[in-house]
Design a protein around this nucleic acid. Sequence first.
DNA 1: CTGACGATTCACT
DNA 2: GTGAATCGTCAGC
Length: 207
Amino acid sequence: MQKLKKEFYLQNDAALLARMLLGKIVVTDFNHQYTAARIVETEAYAGIFDRASHAYNGRRTERTEIMFDEGGIAYVYLCYGIHHMFNIVTNKKNRPDAVLIRGVEPLHGTEWMLSRCNKSKMDASIGRGPGNAGKALGISRQHTGRSLLTNDFFIADDGFEVNNIMTGKRIGIDYAGPHALWLYRFFIKDHPQVTRHPFNKTAIELL
DNA sequence: CTGACGATTCACT
DNA sequence: GTGAATCGTCAGC
């Protein structure tokens, strides 16, 4: 299992990175609670020209400043006062791109995931949806800005080959107007940890 | 300081 | 498909 290097995160095509992150493994080992899960659904948020992005039009705030930093760190923010959304910051400094991790397949440390999700046995909801994915991995707002090149928080490649990649419209960004039509969501076809949504029906398979 | 809202989830009809 | 939960963030005054 190979930890992704800094150069990977510095690439400038957020959509391509979102697609390449499918099949990779998120590893967290906070407080000696080792958990690992395979990424099965992502969304790209592409810099200052993307109306769906928090960094649209170059908006810098205390919260979004982290997106303007160099790739290879986490951007985690609170949504609806409940859900901690885990993003991977990409691209060079002052190019505020990010990839939202929307779904993961649990691989290791399922006992920790169960306790974090207040469940007694595994089911498809563990890791499904951006809120649940971060929750299962123990990622919360306090991890925003954290490097993904450390030993307790990183992304790895185990050589797994993803076959059926689908792409479609991003979810929950109606406010983005025409940019809501961009095919910036990527997921593994028919995977149990992929968000159930009407957009899945209009998604198309990549060759 | 205030009000409106959100890159969601879950239970329920 | 509909609606409530819940609070940090942000723009505006």
